[in-house]
């Protein structure tokens, strides 16, 4: 539960999604996934409240 709140389970979420929705398609490895995830945030920042 706590891992979900802080977003630590993002990779498992992705793998589950990939296997269920796009079966047979390649799944990124853990390292590539996290790299890709933070690189996306470069151009898609999320606001934090005051």
């Amino acid at each position: 539960m706590f891992r979900g709140v802080v977003g630590a389970d993002a990779y498992e979420v992705y793998v589950e999604h990939q296997q269920r929705v796009h079966p047979g398609q390649p799944v990124q490895c853990k390292k590539d996934f996290w790299r890709d995830k933070t690189d996306r945030q470069d151009t898609n920042p999320t606001a934090r409240c005051c």
Binding site: G4, G7, A10, V13, H17
Partner: peptide, 15 residues
Amino acid sequence: GRDFMPTDRRVLFGH
């Protein structure tokens, strides 16, 4: 699988 993703309500509450 990334930014659009159904998330358990209890986790999302914390998030």
